[in-house]
């Protein structure tokens, strides 16, 4: 299938990109790796007038320790997250999650910023960053602001990002050796490169859920129970509280609730070394 025609710009800096976004408003769309945008454009579900390609901006392509955080340029590809030595040491959950996104070809192109911006509740990385208590750094001609990921998502495919803003960085707390309760990622699919039917990212007693509602969610009841000293089994049994899982050909909401509990238990057990 073939996208509707559009104009194309490849600005040579973030500032130039922001100026274009400001100029064209909602007629323009940002293209980074293109693996969220181009599929919907090919199905003609999206038809922007201008595509602004930020995929080559090296200033968005870095993964480095920055104080108590690891700062990840929004243009970092899934493959780069997967093999990052900094992340392997400091935030090992993220490479483990990135490794399960799509397939190798998709991971060579797709970016972490694009994945977070697309706001698909079935996407893995948003739930992982949520479990990590990460921050999303947004920049616009008006300046830069950091939004905790817990406040970033507002619904299916929607976020608090303003039309003139661009995700430039994702910050996640350095964990590494400080992890008291470990980390794990459980992803349940029918086929290896399917979207998760349900996914669970666990880090340091926090639990992020994939595909259990209109946004990535935290299993707050589970987290609270763990903090109160509940057993893993008992805490995991609360994982579907305050979720609103979807129905589709792969799963009923009831089945997703069940999976969320089972996967949460397994992830917590793995994280605790058990």
């Amino acid at each position: 299938m073939i996208p509707v025609g559009f104009d194309y710009a490849r600005p040579d800096s973030v500032d130039a990109a922001l100026a274009l976004i400001a100029e064209h408003g909602e007629d323009a769309t940002i293209l980074a790796g293109g693996h969220s945008l181009l599929p919907v454009m090919k199905l003609r579900l999206a038809a922007p007038e201008l595509v602004i390609d930020i995929g080559r901006l090296t200033e968005l392509n870095y993964i480095r320790v920055d104080g108590d955080d690891v700062a990840i340029g929004a243009g970092s590809r899934h493959r780069e997250v997967e093999v990052s030595e900094v992340l392997a040491t400091e935030v090992p959950l993220l490479p483990a999650v990135a490794r399960t996104v799509g397939d190798p070809q998709v991971r060579h192109r797709g970016t972490i910023g694009g994945s977070l911006a697309h706001a698909d509740p079935a996407s893995d990385l948003p739930a992982a960053v949520l479990a990590l208590n990460g921050m999303v750094v947004l920049r616009s001609p008006r300046g830069e602001r950091s939004v905790p990921i817990t406040q970033f998502y507002t619904g299916v495919f929607s976020t608090v990002k303003e039309p003139d803003e661009l995700i430039v960085e994702i910050r996640v707390p350095r964990a590494g050796a400080q992890l008291s309760q470990g980390w794990a990622f459980e992803k349940f699919t029918r086929r290896a490169n399917d979207w998760a039917i349900v996914g669970v990212a666990v880090v340091d007693g926090r639990v992020g859920l994939v595909n259990m509602g209109s946004t990535p969610l935290r299993a707050s009841a589970t987290e609270a129970a763990l903090a109160d000293g509940a057993s893993i089994e008992d805490a995991a049994a609360l994982a579907d509280q305050a979720t609103d899982p979807p129905a589709d050909t792969a799963a009923t909401p009831q089945y997703r609730r069940h999976l969320a509990k089972v996967l949460t238990r397994r992830a917590l057990q793995t994280a605790s070394g058990g």
Partner: peptide
């Protein structure tokens, strides 16, 4: 839908699905 991989080529040495890459990219 970027599913089948029949269009896989190497772009700067890495496998990509050329149905989901614009020529301008």
């Amino acid at each position: 839908t970027t599913s089948c991989g029949a269009c896989t080529v190497l772009l700067d040495g890495e496998s990509v699905k050329s149905c989901t890459v614009l020529a301008v990219q």
